[in-house]
Design a protein around this nucleic acid. Structure first.
Lengths: 361, 361
DNA sequence: GCAATAACCGTTAACGTTTACAATGTTAAT
DNA sequence: ATTAACATTGTAAACGTTAACGGTTATTGC
């Protein structure tokens, strides 16, 4: 048994040429159905695995990918982009990454997507802020064989190649378990989210609710607060929540805009008797965690998400097939205790003489 | 400015052959000092980056690496090995991985290491259970230019290439913060470890202590319990601990053998009024978490450690230099809420038609 | 029955690096 | 002066895949 089967081996054992074998394996035109099946058969029995190095080497076209994300008001998307950048660098290939950003949820994302298609990029990494708006464009991409990898949010039924995201169930359940433990299974808790129509948020809330019900049945969950990603709405609705429930013991904020909610709690004088679990990690939130106001935050590992998204896309582009269509990451729970770890960031030195330390969250 | 500088470009601009350039760049004999410096100079000014694909392709020697770890009584090392296996597979190269295991701490690890050196492997991934014992052998490896990557535990002053481990500070501090939150900053807590002489354990305990002191000054930390990785010792010392401190409120178990400690707590009738944070994740512990006896465990991501160790070693072997000498991972906090995520494991299907889901902890 | 097309298949030159070997020139020894 | 030994450099064949190009046959249209 040879350990490394090549195109030549297949061709040789069938008495055809490597050109034919190549065409057969890649669905290229110009090979009869008979020989094609024979080649595929032989490839399988011999256990052919393409040599990626040779493949990289022979294809001189250099890849261009488009990264379509929200213009980073928070640092989340900056981190995602940093992860993509890092993965691209370590891939060993020369890859052009074009960034297309759009100002807000559903604002210009269709245009950005179509611009990327227009520019004939080889692949797209996308945050679908309004999956519905993109459905038609993404179907077009699918037809024109342009792979699309979604980050953070899925866009079902659009023919996207893969999705990279945080496990929403784990996020919601973890928040519930943590609050339950801290509150000793007693008291009233609430949850905020941007919109129940967004699958990810709805799932988190559902998991939160279910876990609370099964592990801490004595606890009392209020109706979810929707803020539609509008700061003023978040503040006002939380204000009302705190006024109506002066005995509230804990709150799980899945919203990106957690600061207004915290402000409302502070203004209501409830900050220090409230157990608070938030989502994501950004400078303003760091202060709140360090001061103890926020018990913990569920860190969605944007850098890793970007990294994985690139890897999946890249693997598809060079290997031709995709290792997985759904990459689910475990969220990190960040508290005061391990906060510093997440703040220390990679410091690259170009000189190989300097010993660098990589923190891999 | 050309984007991709090749050996030919350097050779061409100097009027020499690519053979000479290659020899100069790789410190091979048979090139005059003059031309060598000129080549190095030119390579730098042109910004030469070797094409890895071409390098893989041309060198037919296939890499052999040795993985020296403890024979997995717990599943920790099995997971590490699985991570290495996965990384080796996805590296795209044919790589022989030889496993050398030794039964216990410091038992046969020197012999295993020397066997690996004897076998002339290209690199070693190593768990140094007793770094001191290995110092001389590792120095030898360093001299013979065999790269060694440590997993889980560092071996300082041994010339090892790199170390992959969990951030011990983050682990200890996180445990402290969590216990502090749950116990409302009040009460007596304890910590167990295998041996204060092991740097990692000592660091965790120190971080635990410091965080407790700074964030929850009212709490009271008992003297650390050392069990030397002996189950009976763990049981007996914990028994004594619980007898001497019937008012103990929480305990942080950094020991791998957390089960005896839990048994002692159960036997002392203290299990349900004790907040317990453990380390690692294995079947017996899963039950304790699910039942609520254990509040949380600090998961050290063995699979990821194996993965990273392989990547670093591989990159060194093919690229020639090392991206980082210290890879530090963030520990995962596993509670009932997110336990299921970590139990669902990768299910690979060989057929590319099946859509597979990868859980990436 | 002959040219024109199509369908199929073989051949070959890249891609950039490594490595063995050949070809220089230079010095020292006969 | 001739040769052996050596140091330095050039040459060319691999590695496995891709893609463009030529060359076969068969099929069609006149």
């Amino acid at each position: 048994m040879k350990n490394n089967i090549t195109l030549f081996d297949i061709a040789d054992s069938l008495g055809v040429s490597i050109g034919t074998v190549h065409r057969a394996l890649h669905d290229h035109p110009g090979v009869s159905p008979m020989t094609k099946t024979k080649v595929l058969q032989m490839a399988k029995t011999l256990g052919y695995r393409p040599n990626l190095a040779a493949r990289y080497l022979s294809q001189k076209r250099h890849l261009r990918i488009s990264v379509n994300t929200l213009k980073g008001t928070t640092s989340f998307w900056d981190e995602v982009r940093a992860g993509i950048e890092a993965a691209a660098k370590s891939s060993g290939m020369k890859i052009d990454v074009e960034y297309r950003t759009y100002p807000g949820i559903g604002d210009g994302e269709k245009e950005a997507f179509e611009a990327a298609l227009e520019a004939k990029v080889n692949g797209i990494i996308l945050f679908p802020s309004r999956p519905g708006d993109l459905r038609r464009s993404m179907r077009m991409a699918s037809r024109s064989r342009t792979p699309v990898v979604c980050v953070a949010t899925d866009a079902p039924g659009t023919g996207r190649l893969a999705v990279v995201s945080i496990d929403t169930m784990a996020s919601g359940s973890l928040a519930a378990d943590l609050l339950g433990r801290i509150l000793k299974g007693q008291g009233k808790v609430a949850v905020t989210l941007s919109d129940l129509a967004i699958t990810e948020h709805a799932e988190k809330v559902k998991a939160f609710k279910n876990t609370l019900a099964s592990l801490y049945p004595a606890m009392n969950l209020q109706a979810p607060v929707e803020d539609h990603d509008i700061e003023s709405e978040a503040y006002e609705k939380c204000q009302k929540l705190f006024r109506d429930n002066p005995d509230l013991a804990g709150i799980y904020i899945t919203t990106e805009a957690s600061i207004p909610a915290l402000r409302a709690a502070r203004d209501a004088g409830m900050l220090d008797r409230l157990a608070i679990v938030t989502t994501d990690l950004f400078p303003a939130l760091v202060d709140e965690i360090r001061s103890g106001a926020v018990t913990a935050t569920i860190y969605q590992r944007p850098r890793t998400q970007g990294l994985m998204a690139f890897r999946v896309l890249h693997e598809f582009l060079v290997e031709g097939d995709c290792p997985s269509f759904q990459v689910t990451l475990a969220p990190h729970l960040v508290m005061r205790g391990n906060l510093d770890f997440f703040l220390k960031r990679v410091s690259f030195e170009s000189s190989p003489n300097y010993r660098t330390q990589i923190q891999n969250a």
